[in-house]
Nucleic acid binder design. Structure first.
Lengths: 330, 330
DNA sequence: TTGAAAGCGCTAACAA
DNA sequence: TTGTTAGCGCTTTCAA
């Protein structure tokens, strides 16, 4: 059977209390005793049970991560940096893909609570915000990632979406484009990027055409579909540049454009968002607004762990600068 | 505070034993009692503590998933189907990216044991196989995914790599190619795919040039690099077709080829492996050998849960058929 | 400096 | 049919 604290205590000739103290590095005792116990633990290959100590109100050293879809490169890249940082700091992470589906959201929040995760990282929008409010009320550490939702009063890490949208459009303008469409997702972040889009039009003194503001869900086929619809309209001029609110949408646009025989970037310039691996797989490479995924992942873990330790939320709101990566599509 | 079994018992006017029985659906009791308790649990929003029951030797309902890198689309897509199936069956999954790094392998196996996961899904090769042997010896359920390693006697789910290699090369042959290179990863699966490569040459009566058998690690830049090296050699003819052992390598090749001004598939035909999202992002789309990721993920979870329940390994070895998806690069 | 003992929330054998 | 009780492996107070 598994070796327990009793086995160690007996072998080391001390009480379990003493062993517990050396495990947790607490209490006072003769240095020689501490060493002897440490030795025995190593010898017996003793691993304290997380279950038992969690039962005593200690932490489980586990984080819950809620993302829309882990198979989406943006979130899997994010998950990777979160995982790494969490492990560096002695925690593991349970991941859950909500599909932005109300039922799953509820199910997973419940599940993670039952597993007594020490805290939540929420990188998915929630239909039922009260689920999260409930966690906050119960003083369960909860931070949000890429979700700068003003209705939740917690710490947040995200990219400056407004600025990202503004810069993408400004870049299109600076390249001489005047007919620029935006394809947005159904997400809070896209709302801000659309404001950035408007603001850039304002700044350049170009009128903003509502017909150029499109919305859909995030996927390659959706991007392609929206592109096709846009370019088959006869009532408006086709745009000469497109800003897609994520790389997948942008790729859908690229595919649609190539099928239609358009040359990129000559006939149509395209900017994506996120700078996932997908932006590097296309030829030409996709110009895109990069989110500092590695920084953001690390930061959110650090904030969450801090809040777990402190027992209260710092409610900081961290905005990273987006960074336009120019590749071949512009 | 959190509501415990005692609170429920008191409110329902029964003993904790009775409550425990209704939680686990065991024992006999008056139906009305069972209903009353159920009612109370719901009313109080009672969630049994996984920690406490795990302490009593029950399951933690958590699986450990070891992959080389969750941010690699192949593994993130796999992780997604595993996550879904696991949740469907009432389990959550803790993911760990080993980077095929010996130290991390050890660290994560230890970690997951401390967390008392009910079983392991290993989708990463291991430097130190004895770590896994140890788990097996201790009767900890462990199954392998995409790792058909003969030295470990456990249940395995993978694709028929030999056949996949054979079919990719045969397809190149059938398109008239005779100078075909293979770019393999440093992984067990690649060994089998190389055998498939050889076998196809045998079948078509074409001599196998060792210079056409290349190895590297799995990434887009590696693929590109190997391609460039191959095409700058003067001592051998450049191949007219390439089989890359994963989609990333294939994309590296595409990028290299385009830079070199080669037309795809006219000057160079390319086949990848895995059929991840990456195969759909290139233009032209990547012809690739598909692994049935969704099927495999679901199957491996089902096998593992079965073994957890049975308490012993069925040691089945399931081989799925690869499926050549023809797109634009051939 | 060390250890005895109570108790965390639960399960399961056994008694009533 | 229902309840009493002894742990599971650990932490922590308090006493020695």
């Amino acid at each position: 059977m598994k070796v327990t604290i009793y086995d160690v205590a007996k072998k080391a000739g001390v009480s379990i209390a003493t062993v517990s103290k050396v495990i947790n590095n607490t209490g006072n005792m003769r240095e020689s005793t501490r060493q002897k116990v440490k030795e025995t633990m190593k010898q017996m290959n003793y691993q304290p049970s997380v279950m038992a100590s969690a039962l005593m109100g200690k932490k489980t050293e586990t984080l819950g991560l809620l993302v829309p879809d882990i198979s989406n490169p943006f979130f899997s890249e994010m998950a990777r940096t979160i995982e790494d940082r969490a492990h560096e700091r002695g925690m593991s992470v349970i991941m859950c893909s909500t599909d932005e589906n109300a039922e799953k959201e509820m199910k997973y929040v419940e599940l993670l609570q039952r597993k007594q995760v020490d805290g939540f990282i929420v990188a998915s929008s929630f239909h039922d915000k009260s689920l999260l409010q409930e966690l906050i009320k119960n003083n369960i550490p909860l931070v949000m990632l890429t979700q700068d939702d003003p209705s939740l009063d917690v710490s947040k890490v995200s990219v400056d979406d407004f600025k990202g949208g503004y810069e993408a459009i400004s870049y299109h303008f600076s390249n001489g484009h005047r007919k620029i469409a935006i394809i947005a997702e159904n997400a809070h972040s896209s709302i801000l990027r659309i404001y950035g889009y408007r603001e850039a039009h304002e700044a350049y003194g170009v009128e903003c055409k509502e017909e150029y503001i499109l919305r859909t869900n995030a996927s390659i086929p959706s991007g392609k579909k929206v592109f096709e619809e846009l370019f088959s309209r006869t009532d408006i001029d086709p745009p000469t540049a497109i800003f897609a609110c994520n790389d997948q949408l942008a790729i859908g646009v690229i595919q649609g454009a190539k099928e239609r025989g358009l040359e990129i970037p000559k006939d149509l310039a395209i900017i994506g968002f996120d700078n996932t691996i997908l932006a590097t797989t296309t030829v030409p490479g996709l110009t895109t607004v990069a989110q500092p995924i590695a920084l953001m992942g690390k930061k959110i873990v650090d904030i969450l762990i801090e809040e777990i330790k402190e027992g209260k939320s710092s409610k900081e709101r961290i905005l990273y600068n987006p960074d336009l990566i120019v590749r071949g599509t512009t």
